[in-house]
Simulated assay, not measured.
Amino acid sequence: MALAAPQFQARRDTAAVRTAAGRPGSLGAGPRLPRLATVLTGCGMALLPWMAVLARTMPRTAEVSNWSAAWIGLDAALAAGLAGTGLLLRKGDPRVAPVAAATAALLAMDAWFDVTTSMGTGGQGLALLLAAGAELPLAVACAVVAARRTA
Score class of each variant (00 low, 15 high):
residue 53 V to A: 01
residue 3 L to D: 11
residue 7 Q to E: 14
residue 126 L to F: 15
residue 10 A to D: 10
residue 85 T to H: 04
residue 4 A to T: 07
residue 91 K to Y: 08
residue 37 A to D: 12
residue 113 F to D: 10
residue 116 T to Y: 03
residue 5 A to W: 03
residue 80 A to E: 04
residue 66 N to P: 02
residue 146 A to H: 04
residue 96 V to N: 00
residue 114 D to L: 05
residue 104 A to G: 15
residue 139 A to G: 13
residue 51 M to W: 13
residue 83 A to N: 08
residue 51 M to E: 01
residue 124 Q to H: 14
residue 54 L to K: 10
residue 65 S to F: 09
residue 75 D to F: 14
residue 30 G to M: 00
residue 107 L to W: 03
residue 110 D to T: 09
residue 22 G to M: 03
residue 70 A to Q: 15
residue 73 G to P: 02
residue 56 R to M: 13
residue 48 L to I: 14
residue 143 A to N: 04
residue 90 R to Q: 15
residue 91 K to S: 01
residue 48 L to K: 01
residue 69 A to C: 05
residue 53 V to Y: 09
residue 111 A to G: 00
residue 38 T to M: 10
residue 79 A to D: 15
residue 78 L to W: 02
residue 142 C to V: 05
residue 30 G to L: 02
residue 38 T to A: 14
residue 86 G to Q: 08
residue 21 A to G: 01
residue 131 A to C: 09
residue 96 V to F: 02
residue 75 D to N: 09
residue 29 A to F: 12
residue 104 A to Q: 00
residue 41 T to G: 06
residue 45 M to S: 14
residue 5 A to P: 12
residue 8 F to Y: 12
residue 82 L to G: 11
residue 27 L to N: 07
residue 126 L to S: 05
residue 27 L to P: 07
residue 52 A to V: 15
residue 77 A to D: 13
residue 122 G to Y: 01
residue 138 L to S: 03
residue 97 A to M: 12
residue 144 V to S: 02
residue 105 A to D: 06
residue 25 G to W: 05
residue 13 D to H: 12
residue 111 A to H: 02
residue 54 L to N: 10
residue 14 T to Y: 12
residue 41 T to P: 01
residue 74 L to N: 07
residue 23 R to I: 03
residue 59 P to H: 03
residue 19 T to C: 06
residue 121 T to V: 08
residue 123 G to H: 04
residue 20 A to C: 04
residue 126 L to I: 09
residue 21 A to V: 03
residue 20 A to H: 01
residue 33 L to K: 07
residue 105 A to F: 09
residue 134 A to D: 15
residue 96 V to A: 02
residue 82 L to H: 03
residue 145 V to F: 01
residue 95 R to N: 14
residue 2 A to P: 08
residue 74 L to R: 11
residue 91 K to A: 15
residue 19 T to R: 11
residue 36 L to S: 08
residue 51 M to F: 14
residue 74 L to D: 00
residue 108 A to E: 06
residue 92 G to N: 00
residue 57 T to I: 02
residue 109 M to D: 04
residue 126 L to T: 08
residue 55 A to C: 11
residue 66 N to F: 03
residue 89 L to G: 10
residue 33 L to R: 15
residue 2 A to Y: 11
residue 57 T to S: 13
residue 88 L to W: 12
residue 118 S to A: 13
residue 99 V to M: 02
residue 43 C to R: 12
residue 15 A to H: 14
residue 142 C to W: 07
residue 108 A to W: 12
residue 127 A to L: 01
residue 51 M to S: 09
residue 47 L to I: 03
residue 150 T to I: 05
residue 45 M to E: 15
residue 29 A to V: 06
residue 117 T to W: 07
residue 41 T to C: 07
residue 127 A to Y: 03
residue 111 A to N: 03
residue 86 G to R: 08
residue 104 A to M: 06
residue 18 R to W: 11
residue 26 S to Q: 11
residue 36 L to Q: 09
residue 129 L to K: 10
residue 24 P to N: 00
residue 123 G to Q: 06
residue 7 Q to Y: 15
residue 53 V to N: 02
residue 79 A to G: 10
